[in-house]
Simulated assay, not measured.
Amino acid sequence: MKKYLSLTFLTALSLVLTACGGDSSDEGNSDAQSESNGENIKIIAAHNQTSAENPYQDGLLKFKEVAEEESDGQIEVEVHAGTIGTEESELVEKLGTGAADVVLVSPGFMTSTGIREVDLFALPYLFEDYDHWESVVDGEVGDQLAEIINDKSNNEFRMLGYWSAGPRHYYGKEPLESIDDLNGVSIRTQTSGVVSDFWQQTGAVPTSVAWGELYQGLQQNVVDSAENSYPYFVQQNHHTTPNGKHITETAHDYTTRFLLTNGNSFDQYPEDIQEILLNAAEESVITERESVMAQDEEYKEIAIEDGAEVHEIDTTEFQEIARPIQDDLAEELDLTDALEQIRN
């Protein structure tokens, strides 16, 4: 398995950074010059998970380690685990306003910026397994989507790398034996876009609950169920609630997360600083993906030890619902060729 950003993507990004750096404003050039003279550069890096023991934290700590070591301390990275926003929409907003420099967000929340193409990577049952996911995001389709994000945001959002959150599964008050068991079941998930469309067509009722409030929501019957990857929902003890103890391994999404920076701010840094931050991002990708794979098995075992029950299910009916949703979105976004590349 490849554990790195594609060479094509890194080369292209480096060329863009170099070219853009030469077009900086006078104020930007002044800032870059002062930074080259050894003034410290502070980077605010943030994710929305409140637990410090998750793969997101591991990835950002690696980013911090590499950036600070390679710059001999000129770069200082401050990592925030849910402390400047537990909702990804908050992090996207902070990146746009300059209150954060590097953030991790999902495709669903990126669509709020008007870049609907990112929903391609949120489509249920798009990927067969983790290797399939990795080959796509590290290949031509991943490069294409990164360019779209940069272009359509006018350089406000620039891709630094694709992270994973592992395969997502259903967990609720009862196990799923067939798709019929979802009829009328409220599920904490996105309430708009392709993810919502998928769950609605299974018969479930998508419901909005903030991540930080979901444990209480499952405990108090605010929602009947939720869906996520083992490291994330087990760390939050969702599996110990009455409405979270039955885990059905639907693997409906091999999750994609975007590590983003503000390209306009990034372009103000001198080339040596840009290169260090790119190296830090590449190393963070490797670390975060390895952490996801290790923790996925680890936290599944923890859930079982804590009394949760894990169930398997034939996902054929789920995939049959997902395929036309994939087709319709790809046609709407003029990404039919990209969808076929992924399927092939």
Rank of each mutant, 00 (worst) to 15 (best):
Y4W: 03
Y4R: 04
A12W: 13
L13C: 04
L17M: 11
L17Q: 07
S25R: 07
E27S: 10
E27C: 07
S30E: 15
S30F: 10
D31E: 11
D31L: 13
A32T: 04
Q33E: 14
E35R: 05
E35P: 02
E35D: 14
S36H: 05
G38P: 13
G38R: 03
I43E: 08
I43Q: 04
A52T: 12
A52R: 11
Q57R: 14
Q57Y: 13
Q57W: 11
G59C: 10
G59L: 10
L60F: 06
F63K: 09
K64D: 09
E65Y: 07
E65V: 05
A67T: 07
E68Q: 14
E68D: 12
E69G: 05
E70F: 09
E70N: 12
S71I: 12
G73F: 07
G73W: 13
I75R: 08
H80W: 06
E88A: 08
L95Q: 07
G98C: 14
A99G: 14
V102D: 15
V105N: 00
S106A: 08
P107M: 01
G108P: 00
F109D: 03
T113V: 10
R116V: 01
L123R: 00
Y125S: 00
Y130Q: 09
G139L: 09
G142W: 03
G142V: 10
D143Y: 06
I149Q: 04
K152N: 11
N154C: 02
N155P: 01
E156T: 08
M159L: 15
Y162E: 02
S164F: 08
S164W: 03
G166R: 01
P167H: 01
H169G: 00
Y171T: 01
G172D: 10
K173G: 15
P175F: 08
L176I: 15
E177G: 06
E177P: 00
S178I: 13
D180N: 15
R188C: 08
T189S: 06
G193S: 02
V195C: 00
S196L: 02
D197M: 03
A204V: 15
A210P: 15
W211N: 14
G217K: 05
Q220A: 13
Q220P: 09
V222T: 13
V223Q: 05
E227W: 00
E227Q: 01
P231H: 07
V234K: 01
V234D: 02
G244E: 04
G244N: 05
I247Y: 03
Y254E: 01
R257N: 08
L260H: 09
N264F: 02
S265T: 14
S265M: 11
D267Q: 11
D267P: 00
Y269E: 02
P270Q: 04
P270L: 06
E271L: 15
E271W: 10
E271G: 09
D272A: 08
I276E: 04
L278F: 10
L278V: 13
N279I: 05
A280R: 04
A281R: 07
A281S: 15
V285W: 11
V285G: 09
R289K: 10
R289S: 07
V292F: 04
I302V: 15
I302F: 03
I302K: 09
D306W: 06
G307C: 08
V310C: 10
V310K: 11
E312P: 10
T315F: 02
E317H: 11
F318R: 02
Q319F: 01
A322N: 01
R323N: 03
P324F: 04
D328S: 14
E332L: 05
L333M: 15
L333V: 05
L335V: 06
A338I: 03
L339S: 11
I342Q: 02
R343L: 06
